[in-house]
Design a binder for these strands. Structure first.
Lengths: 203, 203
DNA sequence: GCTATCGGAAAGGTACACTATCCATATGCG
DNA sequence: CGCATATGGATAGTGTACCTTTCCGATAGC
């Protein structure tokens, strides 16, 4: 309960309707919003400041759906470290060139591309400059996943629901994907290294 | 430099060889380890405590490679919130049943399955109980991605390098995948909603 | 009229990741 | 030899983020 007061103070939740100077009314929409905030913080790992940004983007009224989706995507994608290895930036540009994306993004401009470059930069710094080899396969897998995401989002009725489903699907999807990818790793590791059953328990 | 001292204190870096009471020697291995720690913290988003755990698992000597990989995977997979929606647990079990994984994992036992259940639980709590629809497609995409990961890891020479590549590839790969998935989202959104060029810039 | 509760504001607390200071030793330079 | 500087090791302090507690005045309900 004190946490709710805190979120109200931070502007993450809209104030309730004051029925009297000391009585505010909160409806289901408030509860829904609260749970969304908790999901963003707990599962999405977003900071309070990021959540505020996301909600602001979600609540924007006057914009095309595509643009709004883009803005929300930026808000839910926090950039990595500030200083990038120029070689990593080049890796990203080459990757974009390979897939005809070079005209749509400026690597240093968007949070998403910055995230990608920061990750490859980090890989380079620990001696894994060949990690970029996996990029094409990642995109191939990501396309399948994104297709499912889009299909899921397309089930929503209102465009407000589309936006919210996009936020939830992207952030919770990140975690789901993390877990599923690890399951796939374990499956492959089992297939490759395990001589028989019995030593595949994770503990 | 003060940070290095801090990491030494916290046991994240091995102490240097004391050539004299006030002079310690650090070699390339120390530097490599330091960069690994930085990558885990900065890109992987791991806490200092988690990094310590991961390094302990990495430095374990007496274990089969497969088991060691399993232990390291647990260490780099922090579980979600403690209380899970039982329905979400059932979702995960059904998912496992569908893919013949039901014998290999106890949902509440492993960090990875817990992560998955926590994410689906969060989805349910915000009214997206149908998000589990995407699971099968996620696995399909994840298999392609995991295949690339395994191929990358298999390039390593020593089994120590395999373990390290697995840590780096998994954690940095998480971020890379996050970014690539968002790119795929944008691509699809562009294809679906954009009437023409010009409004596809993220800013 | 009396108590319990609520909204709102301000101060306090906790956890984490550093960072700064101190001190004794000891090395390198003149 | 003597002295400034640097180093390892320990202790204490800093900054940030996310809550939590406390207080206050007003009112709702009995």
């Amino acid at each position: 309960m004190p946490t709710i007061k805190y979120y109200l103070r931070e502007g993450l939740l809209p104030a309730g309707v004051l029925t009297s100077p000391n009585q505010a009314h909160y409806d289901d929409e408030h509860l829904r919003r609260l749970r969304l905030v908790r999901a963003l913080v707990d599962v999405g790992g977003l900071s309070i400041a990021s959540v505020r940004e996301v909600l602001a983007a979600v609540d924007t009224r006057d914009d095309s759906l595509h643009n709004k989706l883009g803005k929300v995507q930026e808000a839910i994608s926090q950039p990595g470290s500030a200083d990038l290895d120029p070689l990593a930036v080049k890796d990203v540009q080459e990757f974009f060139g390979r897939h005809g994306e070079d005209e749509c993004y400026d690597v240093t401009q968007s949070n998403v591309t910055h995230m990608l470059a920061a990750a490859l930069s980090a890989a380079r710094s620990v001696g894994h400059d060949h990690f970029r080899q996996v990029l094409d396969a990642y995109l191939e897998g990501a396309k399948i996943i994104a297709q499912a995401d889009v299909e899921y989002i397309a089930q929503q009725r209102s465009s407000d629901d589309v936006i919210e489903a996009m936020v939830v699907g992207t952030l919770i999807g990140d975690t789901v994907l993390k877990a599923v990818r690890r399951l796939a790793h374990a499956q492959l590791s089992r297939a490759m290294f395990s001589d028989g059953p019995g030593d595949a328990t994770p503990n």
